[in-house]
Amino acid sequence: MSIIDAHCYLGDGVYMKRNSGDLLDEMDSHGVSHAVVNSTDQYSAVYNREGNDEIIRAVSEHPDRLTGFAVVNPWYGQKGADELRRCIESGLRGLSLDTRRQGCFFTDTIVRRLIQHAADLEIPVYCHTGTPIYALPLGLMELALDFPKVSFIMGSGGWADGWYDAGTAAKTAPNIFIETSYCAIPLIANAIRLIGAERILFGSDAPGSSLETELLKIRLLDLDARGREMILGDNAARLIGIRT
């Protein structure tokens, strides 16, 4: 079975640091065939272009192992939309929002304008969730309901402090997928009950969490083999268009 890490970081962030050599080593030692990466910290807050360039370089060096998402701060407006288009034309496959760092609500006009560009580009959107005030599941739910053709990945399933709304949001908006990093095992189980394994994606958020910790969680889940395959790779392959 091929395992896809649907969300982790790459680059020289102030707090989150990982180079592509270490990333590939970690993937190899945990049997992960493919990882979806984006940059973070200062790169998602302000230096979007520098961060994205690093990701573009990494995925063009390792196209069979890595897929990249672009980071764009919605406050950049048209400049941000242009950056998103540049990234997609350069081979990145989705948009990654971190409104916790970027300082805007999912329902803000600046976010909705950017999402309209993502809709036009027909790309999925990863959204960090779990952090009050700017990154909670019900905000994402409202956004997802307004853009039904866009697939939204609810990063970390609302963990820590939005977990109680994560299932509700994903059940209400069928275009929301839940990514599992940090989520407690019973909450993943609850999400599977509510929306089915087909909308759950394994992700590590490494180096924040780790492949070790996150894969062990999926192993400890009470789940049939098919469900496990879907969560560990098939769903991400289908949603993001990864060939493994």
Partner: peptide, 12 residues
């Protein structure tokens, strides 16, 4: 609270 298996996870 995080499931019976949370101990394996936390220790690991």
């Amino acid at each position: 609270f995080p499931g019976d298996s949370c101990i394996e996870l936390a220790v690991s």
